[in-house]
Design a binder for these strands. Structure first.
Lengths: 265, 265
DNA sequence: AGATTCGTATCGTTTATCGGAATAGGAGTC
DNA sequence: GACTCCTATTCCGATAAACGATACGAATCT
C-alpha cells in the first residue's frame, strides 16, 4: 500500500453489508473522494470489503458515465468532471446553504456593504453565495460557477494562505499572476510573504488589487475538524468604506464565519 | 408547478434511458441538487421522466441512507447531511486536477483561445478538462465522459499516433471514419500516413476537420516513463486564429504539457 | 362534498447484479 | 529470458434486486 490506509465511509464492513447496489456504489464514491488522491482497485477492496468483480463493475460504470476517470498512465481512479461539478452544486444548493444565506444577509444589513462566501475549487475562487448591499454602485463579479483568480482578491489570498504547505507551493509556482490594477500582486515572493502575513493576522485584505476603488476583507471559515473550508468576505467601494474602516469589521465577520462553519460537515 | 421547471442533468429522457439503476439514481440526485430548492416527487417525475414508483423507491432509499431528507413540514426532498458532507469532500479532493487546471488556465489566458486536456479511452477521446477562452463564439463540445471520435480532432489523431503499432492498427481497422466536414479524413490510408507525420513532427493539427471554422493544434503529454498518456490542445475559430498562427504556439503548448505530465503518477 | 392531484403501498415479472473462478496483464527477481 | 507474485479484467450461471402497471390513501382545490 502506498501511504496511509483509506477509511470507509461509515464503519468497517458497512458498505459491503448494504443490500442496495446503488448505496454500495455511492459508498465507493465516498471512500474514493475522502482519499484525496488517486485510488486503485485493490485499495478500494480493502476499504470497502466489496468483492473484486463488484468493485470493478461499479468503477467501470462510473467511469463510463464520466463521474470518475483514470489517472493517465496509471490504473488508479480519480474524480471526474461530472462528479466534480456535482460536488460544487451540492455545496451551493444544500439545505445548509439557506442558513448560510441568512447569516450573510444579516451581516450585510448590519454593515451595509456586500458580502460573499467563497471556496477554492480547482485552484480558482468560486462564490457559493453573495449578498449585495442596497447601493446603486455595485461591482459585477462573475457568479455562478465562473472562476476567479485567487491572487487578487481577499478571499482568494485567504484560502491560498490556509492550504497545506505543499499545495500552496505548487499553486504558487504554476499560477499566472495577471495584473488587473497597479496594486495587483504579481510577484511570487511578495505574494508568498503576504500569505504568511494572512495566516498570522487571521484575515486577508484586497487593497484595490482587482478593481480600483474596491477593497475587501476576508476571514476564514473553519469546519468542525478545524480545517479552513471557505471564506467570508466583505467588499465595498472605498469611497464609502475605506479599507481601514472595513478592517474594523473583522470581528463581526469572524462571528458570521463561526455560524457558517457550523453548517459544514 | 411552483416556479420554473427543473432541468435534467444532461438531456431530455437521458436519465430514464439509463439501464443502470445506480446511474438513474445518481441522475436524480443531480437534478435535485441543481434545483437549488426543495423538490417534490412529481417535479422530479417531469424532470427525469422516470416512473413514479421507481422514483419513490429511489428517494426513499436515499432518505434512509441520510443522503436526502424531507423538508420540515413538507414532503419535498432536500439535500441531507451525508450528501452535504460528500460535496465538501469532493471539493477538497482536487489535488492533481487543480494543478492541471491551473496550467491550462494560464495557457488560455496567454494565448486567448480555448485549451483542453484529453486522453484516449476505449478508442474514444475523453476530455479530462477544458478551459474556455472569454470569447462569445464558442464551440460546445461534449464534456465529462462523453466520448468523441479520434479521427477528426487534433487530440484524437495525436493520441492515436502515439499508440503502439498493434493498438493503432487494431483501432484504425475497426474505427468508423464518419465525415463531419469536407476536410474530415475518411480514408484509412490517408489517416495512417497522417499519423506517421504526427509522430515525426511532434504535434497534430485539425484543419477544420470536425467543425468548419475551427482549427486545433495538439501536443503530447508524457508520463514519467516516457509514454504518451494525454494531449494538450489549443482550439480556436480560424477567423480569429488561423491554423498557421496557431501552430506558432506549439512550443508554448509543449511547455504546458511538461508541467501537466509532472502531475501524473 | 366531490373532484383532482399527489404520495405511498402491493406484487408478479424481468433483468441487472452478484461473486467465485479462471484469465490476462505487469512489475520485480534471479 | 523464464519465473514468480500481485493486480486487474473477463466469464457466466444463480440469485435477488429493480421494475413499473395498478391500486389505494391522503391532501388540496373548487
Amino acid at each position: 500500500m502506498n501511504s496511509r490506509a483509506l477509511s470507509p465511509a461509515t464503519e468497517q464492513g458497512e458498505i459491503a453489508n448494504e443490500t442496495s447496489s446503488t448505496l454500495k456504489a455511492f459508498g465507493v464514491l465516498e471512500v474514493l473522494v475522502r482519499a484525496g488522491r488517486a485510488v486503485t482497485l485493490s485499495e478500494l477492496m480493502h476499504a470497502t470489503e466489496l468483492p473484486k468483480p463488484t468493485l470493478h463493475r461499479t468503477l467501470a460504470l462510473f467511469e463510463e458515465a464520466g463521474l470518475l476517470c483514470r489517472e493517465p498512465g496509471g490504473r488508479a481512479y480519480i474524480v471526474g468532471d461530472r462528479l466534480s461539478r456535482f460536488g460544487l452544486d451540492v455545496l451551493r444548493n444544500d439545505g445548509a446553504a439557506t442558513q448560510r444565506r441568512i447569516v450573510l444577509r444579516r451581516v450585510v444589513s448590519e454593515i451595509g456593504e456586500s458580502c460573499n462566501l467563497a471556496v477554492l475549487h480547482k485552484g480558482a475562487v468560486i462564490y457559493l453565495d453573495r449578498i449585495e448591499a442596497a447601493w446603486p454602485l455595485r461591482l459585477q463579479i462573475p457568479q455562478g460557477g465562473v472562476a476567479m483568480s485567487p491572487h487578487c482578491c481577499a478571499s482568494g489570498k485567504l484560502l491560498l494562505a490556509h492550504l497545506s504547505v505543499v499545495e500552496r507551493q505548487r499553486l504558487l509556482e504554476m499560477m499566472a499572476l495577471e495584473r488587473f490594477t497597479p496594486r495587483t500582486i504579481t510577484d511570487r515572493q511578495v505574494l508568498a510573504s503576504e500569505l504568511d502575513r494572512i495566516v498570522n493576522s487571521g484575515y486577508a485584505v484586497d487593497n484595490e488589487e482587482y478593481v480600483l476603488g474596491v477593497a475587501c476583507v476576508a476571514v476564514p471559515v473553519y469546519s468542525r475538524h478545524g480545517e479552513v473550508v471557505a471564506s467570508v468576505a466583505l467588499q465595498g467601494a472605498t469611497a464609502r468604506l475605506p479599507l481601514m474602516r472595513a478592517i474594523e469589521f473583522v470581528p463581526r465577520l469572524q462571528a458570521a464565519a463561526v455560524d457558517i462553519g457550523s453548517t459544514f460537515g
